[in-house]
Write a protein that binds this DNA or RNA. Sequence first.
DNA 1: CTCAACAAGGTAATCGATTACATTTTTGAT
DNA 2: ATCAAAAATGTAATCGATTACCTTGTTGAG
Lengths: 340, 340
Amino acid sequence: MHKTTVTVATVAAEAGVSTATVSRVLTGSKSVSAQTSARVLAAAEKLRYSGNSIAKALRQNSTGNIGMLVPSISNPFFTSLVEQVEHHLAQAGLNLFLCDSRNLVATEETRLRSLTQGSVDGILVSPVDENRSAAALQRASDIVPIVQIDRRVGAVDTDWVGLDDAHAMRLIAQHLADRGVRTVAFVTSIMGSSSALDRLQSARSSCAELGIAMPDDLVLDGDFSLEWGATAADGLLDSGRDLPDAIICSDDLIALGLSGRLAERGIRVPDDVRVTGFDDIEYASLNVPSLTTLRQPLTQIAAEAVRLLQENIQSADRAKTQLALRGELVVRKSTTRYGD
Amino acid sequence: MHKTTVTVATVAAEAGVSTATVSRVLTGSKSVSAQTSARVLAAAEKLRYSGNSIAKALRQNSTGNIGMLVPSISNPFFTSLVEQVEHHLAQAGLNLFLCDSRNLVATEETRLRSLTQGSVDGILVSPVDENRSAAALQRASDIVPIVQIDRRVGAVDTDWVGLDDAHAMRLIAQHLADRGVRTVAFVTSIMGSSSALDRLQSARSSCAELGIAMPDDLVLDGDFSLEWGATAADGLLDSGRDLPDAIICSDDLIALGLSGRLAERGIRVPDDVRVTGFDDIEYASLNVPSLTTLRQPLTQIAAEAVRLLQENIQSADRAKTQLALRGELVVRKSTTRYGD
DNA sequence: CTCAACAAGGTAATCGATTACATTTTTGAT
DNA sequence: ATCAAAAATGTAATCGATTACCTTGTTGAG
């Protein structure tokens, strides 16, 4: 199986030229005659030369791969984000090195440490916690170009691309107000991630403006998961209180988990209570009832993040950009009663 | 920002020792006095030395990272598999380099090519297509240790770890037979992946044994997605035929998409038709109705795959192992009528 | 007290590809 | 026909960490 390693030297010998020439042919630099070039290519082919990207990276001080660190790849929102990023990177001839911080600051730190050890030219990161991620992130950004994506740590001075949460929540609140909603519950993840924080704050102020009540005891926090959505549904039903007119969830997973549990317990969505999600993951449209949610401009977010990272890699000292892109409300059945 | 690079030489100068000594301290080789060691560590700390894993990899001919190539990271089954693998690799001090072949043989080939260029010590791959993936896989396995996981290309001689599909389908068929099912439809992905092939074949033979009818025109193929599940539901309902007693789906995504569409069109699961999934992704238990499915032994699969890969990396020429692990039937509401 | 064994640390080769610089050959303009 | 510019190719330095091999100094057994 594992034959003797084939290097440029092997190929050079076979083709009867120097290693420099082999390298020139293979990297496509100019100044190699057609015949020589052909001879080298033939030799490379014959020996099944496959290059050594490590050596190349060492010499050129650039690996052609980009690290991406997300809180949880099992969250479909991040999965889609990763897919988009991967797509844009591929177009730029870059490889993706994907890591999962498992929503743990400690794991995040470990990953950042290994990524900053030379294996990547730059990092896209969605930090776990607005505060507790700061130290590791700062350290990493002293070593390698970093762009924050989706979630962010404001205290670390890097580029950031993500959603305009304030605008997004305004769209949702406005939509609910239009349908006559007067009281809402808000189900979210425990404070810590910037997304959760921003969304709650924005929901509060938008609801206030529109005359929608959002009592403190109807703000429930757990995490971004189906499981928590279901638990929150139980919480609301078991509290003894009347259900609000609507339940705003800070992501689709929560909304789907919650909607499922409500159905099991005989509560009809949207007739008994309206429900909104956030992100527009694939399953949102296929759930029964289909979920009204806020679609994030994923393609654009990914494209901008990749672009900014490339700029960062090229020239270190640029003014940092903060890019808040606008989402789009997708109205579906979970907020639409017959006659609405 | 990007300061002058700190290398072992910088640290050596600061500490007043040679680069060899610095390296000895940092890698923990023996024969360094306590004082010297302390001095080196202090210097490294002071200069914020962070090492260069590229150089290290070049010298040691080993990177400490493992590539994993899956057909689609947006499929929750693969997401969970990746999580498990990541966990087991981390325990062995290895990093994960994750790639998505987007269900395309061409993308798969590109990724394999870049992975075999030195960036990883070994590869875990779930090949897109039983036949069309063979060439690229063979080529890659000539260069670097490979273990196939979940799906496989039989023609390429590598280790493989996955599910015992025959056993799994027998469990499902038996369960349905026990509940009085006499006819089934089978909704799957287009043939190509080994999983799809094996599952169909096993379903056919198990049903035959148990006296369950599975007419050819009730075998529908599309892909492993929610979308296709929904489309298949439409297909069954619009065919003009009576619904079968049960619908076996070759993965949970299909089952969930199908179950949702059935509900929308007023068909009740399990009362009008029973539905089974395959994989036991997280959402299977939270769907309404919760989904009867086959739970894959993911942790075990991941653990074995990692173990085999490590063995392969250590000693190239071993006899190859094929490991088919048994899954477990999880009975839920989608096959359970009142009184069953 | 002597010498083998060992500890501590230094020097320089090494991993494989790229590339600055040097050398030779070709080309084309006059 | 001549010479400068351009093309083709070679030689060797380089990227940064590791490590084989060597030198010097210590220790302890006999």
